[in-house]
Every structure is written in structure tokens, then in C-alpha cells.
Design a protein around this nucleic acid. Structure first.
Length: 166
DNA sequence: CTCCGCCTACCAA
DNA sequence: TTGGTAGGCGGAG
């Protein structure tokens, strides 16, 4: 049985993101979605102090990244139920600092599976915590944009905010 | 097993 | 430059 996540909003000048927490950490982050109601106040009040503490970190980190700065401190990330392959890819992403980019091929090489290039793309697409786990810093070979599950507009915007030009 | 994908390298226009 | 293609690998069903 998987308990539903506790959802909390993060207001930024780029819109209201929604963070989702499990009992062990931040498990998801959603881009602002037009027409989506803000998480209920009742749910906020009910959230344990532990989660509110994580949420402060999430909110600060998110604002940092949106401003082109390093996330700095992140709450624990809950990657339960994900495959080892995906986790190894995401761990690599966390090593990339703002303004840096890597290709899918480089990530594949870094995790010791140089030919799993396309699979790396799949893992990026399955990333439940975009922005903080910076899948947007992965470009296709030859520095082309590649894809982005959250929408290419976000990818462009995030990269531009970090001073990356294509 | 089959199908698909945030890929790549390569070849032809 | 664009466009098609085949190889490769992990994930979902």
C-alpha cells in the first residue's frame, strides 16, 4: 500500500510549484499547472513538523535554482520504488552545478554503461523531482536541446536562468 | 516477449 | 542544413 503524499505549495515568481512528501522525504515536485487548486490549507496544518522542515529546504532550494544559483541544501529525497538504474542516473545529475551541462552520453559513461544512452534519457524523463534533480542540465550530443518531460519551454527557461546558451 | 523513448552516429539529399 | 535509419538498453505491460 502506498500512502498518498502530503502536498504542499511553493510560490515562486515562476508560478506555484507543488512538492509531495512521503514519510521519508521529498518524493515529487510538480511544475505550476494552470487551473490546479492550491493544496488544501487543512493538509498544511496537518503536516508534521518534520515535513514542514523539509518543505522549508525545498522552497529555498527551488528558489535558488530558479535564480540560477546552487540548490544548496536539499531535504532527503525519497526514491523508493525506483530502479537502481534510475537512481544512479539521478545521483549523477545532482553532481552537475548550475550553468554546467552534460550530454546523455556523458551521463551514461559516468554510470559505467556507455551504451545506455537512450535509457539515460528515459531515466531523466522519469525523474519525479525536476529542477532540484537537474535533468534540465542534460543536453543531447552536439549541445542541442533534446527533450524535456516538463515541456521544452521550462528547459529553456531554466538553462537561460543559469546563463547557458545553446 | 513486444513496444516505446528527454539518444547517437551515419549517410543521403 | 534537414531527414531517414539502425543500433542499443532500460522500463512498462
Amino acid at each position: 500500500m502506498n500512502t498518498p503524499l502530503i502536498k504542499l505549495p511553493v510560490k515562486t515568481d515562476a508560478g506555484e510549484f507543488t512538492a509531495g512528501y512521503s514519510a521519508t522525504g521529498l518524493a515529487g515536485l510538480d511544475f505550476p499547472k494552470a487551473g490546479r487548486a492550491s493544496p488544501r490549507a487543512a493538509q498544511k496544518a496537518a503536516s508534521p513538523a518534520k515535513i514542514r522542515g523539509w518543505h522549508r529546504l525545498t522552497a529555498a532550494a527551488l528558489k535558488n535554482v530558479l535564480a540560477g544559483r546552487a540548490a544548496n541544501k536539499l531535504p532527503p529525497l525519497d526514491w523508493a520504488g525506483r530502479t537502481e538504474f534510475q537512481k544512479s542516473v539521478w545521483r549523477q545529475l545532482l553532481k552537475i552545478s548550475p550553468g554546467q551541462t552534460k550530454s546523455y552520453g556523458e551521463i551514461a559513461k559516468a554510470i559505467g554503461k556507455p551504451k545506455a544512452v537512450r535509457a539515460v534519457g528515459g531515466a531523466c524523463g522519469a525523474n519525479p523531482i525536476p529542477v532540484l534533480v537537474p535533468c534540465h542540465r542534460i543536453l543531447a550530443a552536439n549541445k542541442r536541446l533534446g527533450g524535456f518531460s516538463g515541456g521544452l519551454d521550462w528547459k529553456r527557461k531554466l538553462l537561460a536562468g543559469e546563463g547557458v546558451s545553446l
